[in-house]
Design a protein around this nucleic acid. Structure first.
Lengths: 112, 112
DNA sequence: ATCTATACATAGCTAAACTATGCATAGTTT
DNA sequence: AAACTATGCATAGTTTAGCTATGTATAGAT
């Protein structure tokens, strides 16, 4: 029996944005991206591998990231992702839309 | 050819919360809920009927809302929804989780 | 008469994120 | 030497929310 999906993502639809943001720091491999997000969010966000890698592949198809095999600091092979110019542009739009959306939701849920 | 789904919801996963919040004001029918959310969000959020009614039904099954047929002020039949005690409790948790999630995301995307 | 706004509802599709699983290797522990 | 843990990538299959599109129906305005 598969486990009941009790709690979904922190906020669906924001994963791409978080990943792209991490890649503006420096090119990273998937595992590193997940670690960074987890640490920066103070353990509030944990990116599942089954979400992470499909997302990276989608974004590669869309031209927001590129990737190449390389060596991780620990000497293991790893695929390093790099944000593209189009990716940066998209990230900017996503962050802007996110802020607007949050503001809009706050207006609604703060009503007395 | 069906239209490309270009922009999804403002923020997926928040619809139930918004609907429940509206019902804390007063019992409303579906159409009224959509109008209220649209106005309070200053037109930023538009709730599609194909999202609204399924959501109301799901929440009814979960026991967060009840409903009954009645008359709208314009004299037309309308199904009025009312938030339950369980619904209020759930709403509180949702709002709390939402705020935490937004904070966590902000921590990540505000990194320099 | 026709059009617009109000009002509910569902069938069918899409896409994101999840669970579960598989593969593989470096380093540590027993 | 064997086992375990952490690192690392990837995909198959499922679930679910929200969407598009469509149908029904009626009050009020033009």
């Amino acid at each position: 029996m598969p486990k009941k999906t009790d709690r979904a993502t922190v906020l669906p639809g924001t994963l791409d944005m978080l990943i792209l943001k991490m890649l503006t720091i420096t090119p990273m491999h998937g595992y590193g991206i997940a670690q960074h997000i987890q640490q920066l969010s103070q353990e509030a966000i944990q990116v599942e591998e089954g979400s992470l890698y499909p997302s990276l592949q989608r974004m590669q198809v869309k031209g927001w990231v590129t990737s190449e095999w390389s060596q991780s600091p620990t000497g293991r092979r790893a695929r390093y992702y790099r944000i593209t110019t189009a990716g940066k542009k998209h990230l900017g739009a996503e962050v802007s839309d996110f802020r607007k959306a949050v503001d809009a939701i706050h207006r609604v849920i703060q009503t007395v």
